[in-house]
Design a protein around this nucleic acid. Structure first.
Length: 596
DNA sequence: TGTGGCTGCCC
DNA sequence: ATTCTGC
DNA sequence: GCAGAATGGGCAGCCACA
């Protein structure tokens, strides 16, 4: 069955296959344009959602609930290959789509009545997968997925699996889809801007596709900011010094404290308040206190404002670490968590207020409006800001922010409009850790590795790292690291480490984590991190700070320095990590308490 | 009823 | 979150 | 410089299973 308002899934798979050969974004866009024009408009939104690895926009809150493991089970069930065999294929190929494809090819018995897959069938079946819950849900999900693989040709299986994982890996994502939609259905030069605007405001790529295909640009223009519907957030670039930032922006800039909490987009319409996360999930039910703060602390009864929610200690007023705030992301026991980890709000922007769309207004005007509509109170605040054109002044302001428990600064171009994405360097993050002379690096021993996926197929994608414990003369894990390596590093490390590969975890390595490959502890590398956190899984300094917890690194990355000069026993020690952990705590404790 | 694996989403 | 890479 | 694709720690919720 085909045609009416549907598309053979094989057509999609063939387009994807051709796209996979290509790296030029222009060429990829052209192919997408062609696909969008050929596709029946009724399912254009489904194609777009599937390409994003979704069924609905994020704020709908419906998830597939299928990851790597369940998908492997489904591939195994459909192909008749054992779970182990499928996992082996995956390990070898580094791509679950290719594993599904090979599994499909190797299938012994030919399916007699194969019902060709269509896009709509894939979409609706995945909807059923998402809906399955309760007892037996995993089996149901696996069976539904297997029903698709059963009817899939090998090439279709490749992309089906990748869609389910949300990793199409074609070098095409939201912005390329927007480009293609603009050309396919907009035609004019202003089209791209209108299409992007509609996306930023609606946060729904499927809606944009559906609308532009059916009603053209005029249709898109009717998509406006609506209280209760999340806006795609503006993002920031990073630089490592005030001078670089000032060079980039020129003139006076606005520097704001950057809090270490959860970004919150707060929508208020009368008594009704909704809170959205950075990824536009509806998190209103997690934060009844924030709802109340917004209801009473905003002078505008019809507004969208944005800020950071930060947990604080009710007794001392000190900020709590991000880790503690995470206890608030819960469905049950919200009331108790609210008492234990109260949140205060530090607003930094206004997107909409009293019928006016502020996204097109310059930063300074938005800031002024924000100050007008916010009634600063015990738990309702505006992020501290200063205007400066002096790097030293900015530096002092950053140190002040850090002493108060913030991560650093976000520096903003005073004339810039609110635009989603990290565009045109109008917001720039400045964190202490970006400056090597301000942050300690650590030297850690490579004790294990994990097979790389996708473009890292064939080399290790990440390494398991450990610190040296003098007391027991063993190596205790602290983190994995998978970023900071150039492609060349990855190849070199992979080859160089072969001589140290062993069958099992080395007896001198203490790890709760199971690596794909274990090594004799020998190679030491330099790693940079934002801070040291308590860890339920890493074994370094286990129990030293808190029973049942070790220490781990937050945001670890390889600095590019291979410490050939160091033997494994010369690596950073567990004792040193404990000292580093304590000194960062001390820094927070020295902070004068929050000026209520 | 408790535990552990998996998943999704914060950073 | 951070980082690297092709265009 | 943009857009995309690799990769991190760790939390709660859900489901399977002992």
């Amino acid at each position: 069955m085909s045609s009416n308002g549907d598309l053979q899934f094989s057509v999609l798979a063939e387009v994807f296959e051709r796209m996979e050969e290509i790296t030029s974004r222009n060429a990829l866009t052209d192919m997408l344009i062609d696909l969008f024009k050929r596709a029946p408009p009724e399912i254009l939104d489904e194609i777009v959602y599937l390409m994003q690895g979704k069924l609905y926009p994020d704020f709908v809150g419906v998830e597939l609930g299928v990851g790597e493991k369940l998908l492997l089970r489904a591939i195994s069930l459909a192909s008749g290959l054992s779970q182990e065999r499928v996992e082996e294929l995956y390990r070898k190929l580094g791509d679950i789509g290719r594993a599904a494809e090979e599994a499909e090819k190797s299938r012994k018995q030919v399916v007699l009545f194969r019902e060709p897959l269509t896009v709509h069938r894939v979409y609706t079946t995945l909807e059923r997968v998402a809906k399955a819950s309760g007892e037996g849900a995993q089996d149901s999900k696996v069976k539904l997925l297997a029903s698709l693989f059963n009817d899939a040709e090998p090439l279709e299986a490749r992309y089906l699996a990748r869609i389910v994982m949300g990793r199409l890996r074609l070098g095409v994502a939201d912005y390329t889809v927007l480009d293609a939609l603009a050309v396919a259905f907009g035609g004019t030069k202003e089209a791209r801007e209108v299409v992007e605007r509609a996306y930023n405001v609606s946060s729904d790529l499927g809606l944009v596709a559906r609308t532009v295909a059916a009603e053209g640009l005029e249709g898109l223009k009717s998509i406006r900011i609506t209280v209760g519907r999340p806006i795609r957030p503006m993002l920031a670039e990073r630089l490592s010094s005030p001078k670089e930032i000032l060079d980039k922006m020129g003139g006076k800039v606005a520097a704001e404290y950057k809090f270490d909490g959860e970004r919150m987009q707060v929508h208020r319409s009368g008594d009704r308040v909704m809170v959205f996360s950075r990824r536009l999930e509806n998190i209103t039910s997690h934060y009844p206190d924030v709802v109340e703060i917004a209801r009473t602390g905003l002078r505008s009864s019809d507004a969208i404002v944005e800020g950071e929610g930060v947990a604080f200690d009710a007794d001392t007023g000190e900020f709590l670490p991000f880790q503690e705030l995470m206890h608030r992301r819960r469905k049950y026991g919200v009331e108790k968590a609210m008492e234990e980890y109260p949140v205060s709000l530090y607003l930094f922007d206004v997107i909409y207020a009293d019928g006016v769309d502020y996204t097109t207004r310059p930063y300074m005007e938005r800031r002024k409006k924000l100050e007008e509509i916010v009634e600063v109170g015990e738990r309702m605040n505006i992020a501290p800001m200063m205007m400066t054109s002096d790097p030293d002044e900015m530096e002092r302001f950053m140190m002040e922010a850090i002493e108060k428990g913030c991560e650093g600064l976000v520096v903003k171009d005073p004339s810039s409009v609110y635009r989603a994405g990290a565009r045109e360097w109008s917001w720039i993050k400045l964190k202490r850790e970006y400056r090597s002379e301000m942050t300690d690096t650590v030297d850690l021993v490579i004790v294990g590795a994990f097979h790389g996926r996708g473009k890292r197929a064939g080399v290790y994608g990440a390494y398991l790292l450990a610190a040296y414990d003098q007391g027991s003369d063993t190596f205790k894990t602290v983190c994995k690291v998978g970023t900071g390596f150039t492609d060349e590093d990855l190849r070199n490390f992979h080859d160089m480490l072969q001589q140290y590969v062993i069958d099992h975890r080395h007896p001198r390595v203490d790890s709760k984590m199971d690596a794909d490959v274990w090594f004799v502890p020998q190679v030491v590398i330099e790693v940079l991190a934002a801070e040291i956190t308590l860890s339920p899984i890493h074994t370094a300094a286990w129990g030293a700070i808190r029973p049942g917890a070790g220490l781990a690194l937050r945001f670890p990355r390889y600095t590019g320095k291979l410490r050939t000069d160091k033997g494994p026993e010369d690596a950073t020690t567990v004792t040193e990590l404990v000292e580093m952990y304590r000194s960062q705590i001390k820094k927070i404790e020295e902070t004068p308490s929050e000026g209520s």
